[in-house]
Design a protein around this nucleic acid. Structure first.
Length: 547
RNA sequence: GGCCCCUUGGUCAAGUGGUCCAAGACUCCGCCCUCUCACGGCGGCAACACGAGUUCGAAUCUCGUAGGGGUCACCA
């Protein structure tokens, strides 16, 4: 067989050679690691994708290397319209921005492009042609029907399914036969003539899982589809070689095709990258675990966190705790540092899949929120509300300083509150500052007449300028003078000698002002409300207690 | 089914042959602090999948079993 003739027959229009491309894309120099995120634009960005991208970026950052974004759009059937922009938007929202590659629609940076596979057709074909020339690839005219029939036969015989060994009908077609087939208009794919054998064992060192040993690939896998577009396997080898990727970090569903990839790199004369296969993020499902599914689980889509209003940084922090469990410890020791400063390490990655734990995530988010100032929270919350909660947006922007004052209550300091995990919590958290329609059903059980007396007396001593300590001292003094015990314990000891405890008084006042039993510091709340509003609320409660 | 990966409390996990009658975090519970809640402090429940072997000694090494996951496309 004259492979050169076959190559020319198949790729007459390809005039470049691999050497030409090697010149155009010279090795990158420097010893930083080059990583990439290479999704296909088939849907929203998945949390697992974000996870892989985050890790890839950190690995590059850690070594002073480069992290780039490549779009694998070789399957036009599954592609969706906004796929690319969804991915870019998603990455950007969570701060996983690429240093190089695809930046937006028709927009990219870097010297190793194009970074969109559909624009690299000629490159793939050049390398495919070379493969044919070397006798390592051949056209295959077996259609879907034949593939199905051998699959059925193989299943019947209980042997491995696939195009290999004696099942390869087109492997040894003569040049004449190929010509005839093409002339008669038959479509074909280009297959690898795999030199491998199932008997041989190959192994590689995975950056996360360690040594992995598998049988060598002996399948004549498709390299170019009938439309001349490469399969993932082939595009992966060509692109990651040409783009100088040193470390491929991807989901562990790829482990099983690693032998194909290793073989491809070898046959093409490329140095294989270091592979690190990360386990998928799982979800609890009726006692068992399963991969987070884009279909069934809303929290699988990165947009979920956006819609709920989780701080984007909290998502990153949680993902980092899943990736490197020492992250939490580091965070505790360095509460003020940006998470970029954390020394990320691939070999601390867990080998098994972690369950996504919403409780834990909420805790991470709450802690994250405690680190923001009232102004920052205001900015985050308004931009979230503008998109997802217009009534809240209106409230917040009508009076920014009022809103900021609300967020400032008990913020900062030694004992930060952890009420807010996500911006959508703010509506409920701040409700009584805006709409006040009290039911008073939370009033303490001390009798309306006592509440009446308490509140009327309180008005006389209320001084809006009082700070917490003075404020409470006054309240306590008044309560004691009116026959209340200094604490619940005291009251319980002698319930008959008191009308209640100071805490009942505080609760009555709290309910009068907020209609809730549980709130942050009441003194601060009254200050934020202002003297007029506070007094009017107290009056309202007094009115109620008269009935 | 073949091939491959995985297996420490409910969850995330530390642990690389003795320092482990197994750390820490989340959740839950109790107590303390306390004007409520929260925060914080103290304490509690709760785990090395199972079985053999190697070894003076195993969560840690080996083998087997079981369970979970992945993959077997002209999808990535």
């Amino acid at each position: 067989m004259d492979f050169n003739a076959l190559a020319e027959l198949l790729f007459p229009e390809i005039t470049k050679t691999p050497q030409d491309y090697e010149k155009i894309y010279p090795p990158r120099g420097g010893d930083g690691k080059v990583t990439r995120f290479a999704p296909s634009p088939t849907g929203f960005l998945h949390i697992g994708g974000l996870f892989a991208a985050l890790i890839s970026k950190r690995v590059a950052m850690e070594s002073g290397g480069t992290f780039y974004l490549r779009i694998e759009d070789t399957d036009k059937k599954r592609e969706i319209d906004d796929g690319v922009s969804e991915i870019i938007k998603g990455l950007e929202a969570f701060g996983v921005t690429p240093d190089e590659g695809v930046l937006g629609f028709e927009k990219e940076s870097g010297n190793y492009g194009p970074y969109v596979q559909s624009r690299r057709r000629e490159i793939y074909q050049t390398y495919a042609k070379e493969l044919v020339r070397k006798g390592l690839a051949y056209p295959c005219f077996c259609g879907a029907d034949y593939m199905e029939s051998i699959k059925a036969q193989q299943e019947k015989e209980k042997v491995r399914t696939g195009y290999y060994g004696k099942w390869t009908r087109c492997r040894d077609l003569s040049l004449e036969e190929v010509k005839e087939n093409i002339a008669s208009g038959k479509s074909y794919v280009l297959r690898l003539r795999s030199p491998g054998s199932e008997e041989n064992r190959i192994s590689f060192i995975d950056g996360i899982k360690g040594k992995i040993e598998m049988p060598e690939n002996d399948m004549d896998i498709v390299v170019l589809k009938s439309d001349g577009i490469p399969t993932y396997h082939f595009a992966h080898a060509v692109d990651d070689h040409l783009m100088g990727t040193t470390d491929v970090i991807r989901g562990d569903e790829w482990i099983s095709s690693a032998p194909i990839h290793l073989q491809l790199f070898e046959l093409l004369g490329f140095e294989a990258p270091k592979y690190s296969h990360i386990s998928p993020i799982m979800k609890e499902d009726g006692g068992g675990k399963r991969k987070l599914s884009k279909r069934k689980d809303p929290e699988a889509a990165v947009t979920f966190y956006h819609e709920q209003g989780y701080p984007t940084n909290a998502v990153t922090e949680y993902l980092l705790t899943l990736a490197n469990s020492n992250y939490e410890e580091w965070r505790r020791d360095n509460p003020a540092l940006p998470n970029e400063d954390f020394p990320f390490s691939l070999d601390k990655m867990s080998v098994s899949g972690a369950l996504f734990d919403l409780d834990k995530f909420n805790d991470v988010a709450k802690n994250d929120v405690t680190r923001y100032s009232a102004d920052e929270i205001y900015d985050f919350a308004t931009s979230w509300a503008e998109q997802y909660n217009i009534p809240l947006y209106k409230k917040l922007t009508d009076n920014p300083s009022y809103a900021k004052a609300i967020f400032a209550i008990e913020r900062g300091g030694e004992k930060p509150r952890k009420d807010i995990a996500k911006w959508s919590d703010i509506e409920e958290y701040s409700a009584y500052f805006y709409d006040f329609n009290p039911t008073y059903e939370n009033m303490p059980e001390i009798g309306k007449e006592n509440i009446y007396a308490l509140l009327t007396e309180y008005k006389k001593i209320y001084s809006p300028a009082d700070e917490n300590e003075a404020w409470f001292a006054k309240l306590k003094e008044l309560a004691l003078s009116m026959g209340y015990a200094k604490n619940p314990k005291e009251y319980k000891k002698n319930p008959d000698s008191y009308k209640g405890a100071v805490s009942d008084f505080a609760t009555a006042l709290r309910v009068a002002v907020t209609d809730r039993r549980n709130t942050p510091d009441l003194c601060a709340i009254m200050q934020v409300l202002g003297e007029k509003e506070a007094l009017s609320r107290i009056d309202k409660a007094i009115e109620w207690s008269k009935k």
